[in-house]
Simulated assay, not measured.
Amino acid sequence: MRLTLIIAAVVILLDQASKLYIVEGLALKDRLVIDVWPPYLSFHMAWNRGVNFGLFSGLDMRWILIAVALVISALVLSWVWRDPSRRWANVAAGLLVGGALGNVIDRLRYGAVADFLNVSCCGIENPFAFNIADIAVFAGAVGLVLFTGETGRAKADGRKKRDASRRPR
């Protein structure tokens, strides 16, 4: 559980520091676009009032989305607390919780999530922007799928058996 909380805190700090520096410090909220490494990386200011990819952004869902993020974070933390044995599941949970709470802070502070990272490649222009919290939520969700449940347990059990067989007797 401790590892989960440390990872969550690091994600929140990185996410909020990047937003403070880029959105406020570099004045992206006023400039709207800053080319960093054209055409691959640019900062595009986007205020996401909805869910992923701006879905439902026309509805005032701020408080509902804050509540959902807090409930999901609490459930994930409770889950990890009850089954703390898998290191990578704890890392994944920390990423998910830290990212969710980073976006909650945005919704409380700005009324919307501040998205600014835009990555394009190979002549394809990406119309979407995201942030560090979004990356962490995605990576955490994928990690929880990979490192929990029967598949995660089977991998952990297999490692324990291999490690036990390698010990000198």
Rank of each mutant, 00 (worst) to 15 (best):
A92N: 13
N126I: 00
Q16W: 05
N103Y: 03
D115I: 01
G149T: 06
L70T: 08
W47T: 13
V137D: 14
V113W: 01
L20I: 06
L28R: 00
V33E: 00
S165R: 07
T148A: 14
I34S: 01
M61T: 14
F53T: 06
H44W: 00
Y40A: 08
G140C: 11
G54K: 00
T151P: 12
L117R: 01
A9E: 06
V97L: 13
D15C: 03
D35F: 00
V113Y: 00
S73L: 08
R82Y: 01
P168R: 06
V11E: 09
V33R: 00
V36C: 02
V68E: 13
D106G: 00
I12K: 11
V97H: 14
L101P: 09
W47N: 10
G111L: 02
A74P: 13
Y21M: 13
G54A: 08
S42V: 01
A114R: 01
D35S: 04
Y21E: 12
L14E: 10
R109P: 03
N131P: 04
N90H: 06
K160M: 02
K155P: 02
S18H: 15
G111K: 07
W47P: 05
F138Q: 05
V97T: 10
R169K: 11
T4V: 09
V80H: 09
A46R: 04
L14V: 12
A100G: 05
I34C: 03
D35K: 00
R153E: 13
A89P: 04
R82C: 01
V68S: 12
L3M: 08
G50M: 09
E24V: 06
S78R: 06
A129V: 07
I6T: 09
G98L: 10
R2L: 09
M1A: 11
R107H: 02
L32H: 00
K19P: 01
A93T: 07
G149W: 10
V145S: 14
F56E: 04
G158K: 03
R153A: 11
G123R: 06
V76A: 15
L14H: 07
A133E: 10
V97P: 14
R87T: 10
N48E: 06
F43L: 02
S42K: 00
G50T: 10
A112H: 05
I6D: 03
R87V: 14
A69I: 07
V51C: 14
P127D: 03
M1I: 05
W79M: 15
A8T: 07
A9C: 11
A100F: 02
I64N: 08
T151D: 15
F147E: 13
V137H: 14
G158Y: 02
I72V: 15
L5E: 15
A74F: 12
L101I: 08
L77D: 13
G158C: 03
A133Y: 12
G94S: 08
G50C: 11
